[in-house]
Amino acid sequence: MGNKEILRQRAEELAAKVNGEVEEQNGVLVLKVKGAYLSETLSTAKSFPDVPCDFLHDLTALDLKDHFEVVYQLSSLHGPQRLRVKGTVDREHPVVNSVTRLWRGANFLEREAYDMFGIEFKGHPNLKRIYLWDDFEGYPLRKDYVTESLEERSVVLPLKKGE
């Protein structure tokens, strides 16, 4: 069996265990699960026998009108397997488990998702804003965020102590 078929088989087994679904988008397998099952899904995918998806390329979020989706792009440095894992999260209280204990490189990525969308990652060592200043109000990449007018943006922020 080729690499792709083994991966699809494992992904479908995993999907059956966590009530997810598998589809294919432009040549890549996508595994959609609910947010609560994300850490289990990701740790299993990281240690798939024969086709481990152990390299995290990217961690981001999407704002679909009524819910968020946290998207993980996985692949491997030692094999051609590629997998995309998406976890649906509630819009009112977006909370997901952090994956920093699986991949240390997810640290900055989760801070960025928190900064842009407001998704909280439980278990993250230092969940603060990374791109915007600490007093910024709102989460810019949400679809209902309104950019402030030119006049409001022309006001220079006061310098805080320690900057």
Binding site: L56, R104, G105, A106
Partner: peptide
């Protein structure tokens, strides 16, 4: 190993 874990 650290480089791989850090997604470098």
């Amino acid at each position: 190993e650290l480089a791989e874990n850090l997604s470098i």
